[in-house]
Nucleic acid binder design. Structure first.
Lengths: 133, 133, 133, 133
DNA sequence: GTGGTCTAGACCACG
DNA sequence: GTGGTCTAGACCACA
């Protein structure tokens, strides 16, 4: 199965689906052009309602991660090789990074350890392919 | 004012308060033993319901960041110098890091840029004091 | 009642709600800061499901027309006095204008008549207030 | 190729075809009596299902823009010189204009700018020929 | 077959 | 009290 979710998590299911898809793209399991399962198919696989999958896909579409086609379903629209982020992206992203790192700092995680783990996560992602000519 | 919040954000207010307090500790503005404003005081300053502040403080307490005494109010319980994180902390924290980084990767932010910003955020925090003897 | 919808139209109800709200703002019936009815209240007034209103409000929020606050509900975020459109707006808007005008042209409406009606519609809108200092 | 469509747009393909044909007539690229490509030909050119083209042509026929003969295929039935619009046309058309202009107003586009763009679009259309005697 | 819309109702999170 | 989430099922639009 492509992705797993935790029904008991306090993170909404549609958000978990979004996160798992984004991670799958970063990992290289999905890449630009890859097809996602149909909403009803994925809903059946995860034993959840198809509206919830719908909401997740709609969110991914609004974030320009996938495109949705009536005929062919959901398709990955961008991956790491699809070009640099839009101008406003970092402004939204870095504050969240700051909050996450602050949490680690307060709980006593060493800055070197934070950096080490950061590098480790980045290394676990798929190497960036060259931008297609 | 110690912390500012955005009433129109989609992030719940109590969560914003938690985040700001955590960041203030990481920044060194608050340290172990520092007193937080009283719930009613902070609620008045932020023009919000004091139950909301209560909820934020309770969350911080459950996360071992502050302790709450009836007499002395809310006091910072730990900062970066208060010792290493508990055993389960990284298991909860790193997946969130992974999700955040995956988002950056998918939107095309260069891994070097991610690392650069990570180091920048860590540098903006207060240097670790020695653990008090 | 603030707005009326046509259940028999082929235009989706949530879209009609969006259109009516946008028109009410252009007409000056609603302005920046005006509160919209709560989702469940409006749903009851229109005798439709609250999820449909929810979808309409969410669409308006994504288009920066309203902001939604858990406490105070939906509030108008921008009107004609809220500053010029974002850079991409005209690129999305003018093609739709072109299609609409082409339809008029093909059906034989005189260009002068088109312009006359255009001016008439614009005159029916509220005069632009000065941007608040 | 006469017309181009965007398979990823949220606008249905049959609607896009209709729009492009109407615009081609307004532009003067097609005029009364011009033949449209056969459904199968156009479907092949656009790499879409020919039923979709059928649906678009049927819509144009119902809107009195083309007529369809088994023998001669689809032929443009009217253009700007084919006489004034029917009595109900403006009643259907102007509300859509109102909605479109309201959107521009709410997003802060200046009324003068709206009129300027309106005139620009009309100028880009083919000049009206005299009605053939 | 695909996704989109609307209805209906339960339950929760937030303030 | 507000909006948000999830479930469930019917029906429609599109290709």
């Amino acid at each position: 199965m492509l992705l797993t979710i935790d029904l008991d998590s306090d993170v909404p299911i549609y958000q978990q689906i979004r996160d798992r898809v984004v991670e799958a793209i970063a990992d290289g399991e999905l890449r630009e052009g890859s097809a996602l399962p149909s909403t009803r198919q994925l809903a059946a696989d995860l034993a959840i309602n198809f509206h919830t999958v719908n909401k997740a896909y709609d969110l991914l579409r609004r974030q320009n991660v996938i495109r949705i086609n009536r005929k062919s379903g959901a398709v990955v629209r961008r991956d790491a090789a699809s070009g640099p982020p839009g101008p406003g992206f970092a402004d939204d992203w870095e504050p969240r990074l700051r909050t996450l790192f602050a949490e680690a700092a307060v709980h006593g995680m060493d800055p070197q350890e934070v950096l080490r783990r950061s590098a480790g996560v980045l290394d676990s992602f798929a190497p960036r392919r060259e931008t297609p000519v």
